[in-house]
Write a protein that binds this DNA or RNA. Sequence first.
DNA 1: CTGAAAGCGCTTACAG
DNA 2: CTGAAAGCGCTTACAG
Lengths: 342, 342
Amino acid sequence: MARAAGVSASAVSRAFTPGASVSADKKARILRAATELGYRPNVMARAVATRRSNVVGLILFNETNRHYPEVLLALSNAFSAVGVRIMLFLLEDDDEIDETIDHVLSYQLDGVITAAPIPDGALQQLRAARVPLLFYNRPGAEGCASVSCDHVASGIAIARYVLAQGHHRIGVIRAYRDSSVGSERMAGVEQELARGGAAIVAEYRGDFDYDSGLAAVLDWEERGDVTFTALIAANDMMAIGARDGLAHLLGRRVPNEVLVVGFDGIEASRWIGNAIPSVAQPIEQMSLAAASMMVERIADPDRLAERRLFAGRLSQPSTRDLNSDRGWNPNHSPNEGCNAGN
Amino acid sequence: MARAAGVSASAVSRAFTPGASVSADKKARILRAATELGYRPNVMARAVATRRSNVVGLILFNETNRHYPEVLLALSNAFSAVGVRIMLFLLEDDDEIDETIDHVLSYQLDGVITAAPIPDGALQQLRAARVPLLFYNRPGAEGCASVSCDHVASGIAIARYVLAQGHHRIGVIRAYRDSSVGSERMAGVEQELARGGAAIVAEYRGDFDYDSGLAAVLDWEERGDVTFTALIAANDMMAIGARDGLAHLLGRRVPNEVLVVGFDGIEASRWIGNAIPSVAQPIEQMSLAAASMMVERIADPDRLAERRLFAGRLSQPSTRDLNSDRGWNPNHSPNEGCNAGN
DNA sequence: CTGAAAGCGCTTACAG
DNA sequence: CTGAAAGCGCTTACAG
């Protein structure tokens, strides 16, 4: 390219570097030649020269994308807005994490943002290689930067909502073992329920998916444990599964006989067939925060760790939605109903 | 690293290159030093030296991920199985495509797989740069490689299913303008319905999302067009929206009064609250095919275009599921019901 | 098997 | 402003 335009390599480099000092004339000539030849600077070569790739790794459990696809878009948009590309690592299992970190380290990625836990060893390696690490919706280890939703507060909020509706016998579907999000939420829930004098009369431990919610209900039914008037699940997907189980398999009226609530405020929780009150995460804000924190930390890897915690937002379907379980209510016109989906 | 281990740069390169000729002894020494220092070859540098990055770009509409998250995982897994990393470009709008291609061209990506249309200009650029292009679920332009589900055949299959249930008055929800998947499906549907002597008595054009399905039903209701006994939507998400509208807003019994069917076989179409018959795409097979085709084309960019077309699979919920709309049927035990979610 | 050399495509002080 | 030179971290003929 340099020779094609009859200039030095330095010149073409400068022509493509925003603030560089090139004469307007020369720059124009280079740019013109470039479009003619279909030339564009090779970003990878630049990356090895500058030691900056403008690519970050994103580590996400497939489960998260399956049951909360909003997250990926929000992050993708936020990073693309600051000119950073994403190399995606979609995990199906914890044991893929080390291998993933290996890849992150091999590609000269500028940083990694993870919604999965990072084993100690990998953490050391990242630190040694000085690649900025940002936890998303999980505290991470000591001294790690993170951006999260305040799940404990969300738990308190949803429990308060349930209490306010007059419920005292509660069923809960927790999340499996090491889900930090799940345990934080449920810690908040229990704390507030205790404060409000409500009792947890049924418990189940699920996997964050629809089937877990269904399984919880069937399990309880078998044991005669379906004596609660409200059910709090650790996320919407399980709440929806439980709701379907209660309504379609046990024939309970939801929410009239049993109130079912969840977390995340996913799209499906607003479907009129589901209509689950929920605490939504401010995904866009969180993602923007993640992107800007990442940019800061790329610029200065020694920057002290910061944790940003965002409050969730209670999203409660209108009463019409909540009561629509048994079908169309003749007191409402179709047009009103239309809003339910928006 | 080379000097740390007291060897030449060539030696360490060879130590990390599978078939290269290094003495076992030297190789061991290098590898040991590497783990001690936490050294690993810089893949980007290798990429500029070899002109191969082992990274492909994946262009996907956000809409696709939102309403069919299965796709991303399948592709991610298939590519990771052949040692190829994915740089993700999640689009919200058509007009981001050119810019995306620009990025693809700038990073020395080995290829691009796209589920979005590629404008002519971009197509030329990719061809000129000799970067292999693979269309996913879309025919692409003349002479383009692609892997797709046979959407026309799927349309025929679902229409045949509907006809077999004895339906003759059909409503259809098409997809917007330039959705190739949507129009292929509907072409198949119409062809088969015509052959079977059924009439399309209501039409609507949607956006592939839940709200479109809901809107279709409300629109028809307003015009007094809800006279069909079966409704075919261009994808599951719209089918589910329509189903909810019919059941919860219009008070129709689904599927007893109106049969609603869709395409994709997404997880939500198997929820017992929805239970939509559908034609599923063999996502895993398609993704594996995509990965291996991409690998072939990376190895030989001049390879002639190939199109691989996979048949869809009719997935029809059990009768119990289909009739569960109005709640638990006392003739069935909870344990039987449990299978619905699996 | 092995190292020195040249090259991949860029960037960035350094002298003009 | 501008080019030659050295360097980023690798790979790959080329001679031993």
